[in-house]
Amino acid sequence: MSAVAYYLESAGIATTGISLVRENTKALRPPRFLWVTFPLGRPLGLPGDAAFQRRVVLAALALLDAPSGPVLEDYPEDVPDLPGDDVFACPVRFPPRASGRGRWGSALLEEIALLRPWYALSRERRGRTTVGVAGTLVETLAERLGALLDAPERLPGTLAELTELKRTLADLRAFHEEAVTAQPGDPPWREVRRLLWRESVLGDAMLTLRDRFDASGDPRLRAFTRVLVPRGALED
């Protein structure tokens, strides 16, 4: 982000915007940024709160009047505490995890079948879905992922296969997260994360892949584990 700002500004385009990690922005010294304390993934702070988002945007735009720079200003407003996770109810009970059973494909499909009505509700309520990166049905993606997991000796060998795997997982995760947050309101993201990584078959599938890739000794597969499982996956 800071780099793009720097290069645009040096080409004559005035820049301002949001910084999520103050230390990184300070080090790179881009022209103007407003640092916010909001969680990663939420640079405008609160979903569905237009007034809150507008205040953040206007504070960042105000930096364009600074007489000299670089400018890194701290935004004074925090996001209010989310409602307690106890008020968030997962709409489904996930099927048993498939580890070691050699039936990943069917377990993933069973989970998708449970989630699908909630995903449909999400699409209806939100009027959109963020599923669609891989360009095929999530059931097909689940079968593809299941086939990989059910054959432990089979590991992706090419960059193209890893790129396809990244897109497969992006859609499966989006489907999962949209389904479990189908009901209105700001989803408590830590609980959404806990459900994925602690309870769901999909989370177990990605953790299993991570362990296999780590054990493979292949540097490319080991590097890929960084885009498989987040650093804080099992914190909750």
């Binding site: 982000m1 700002a5 645009l8 820049t15 301002t16 915007g17």
Partner: peptide, 8 residues
């Protein structure tokens, strides 16, 4: 003349 930048 102006770009507004957002990270994620």
């Amino acid at each position: 003349d102006t770009a507004f930048l957002t990270p994620v």
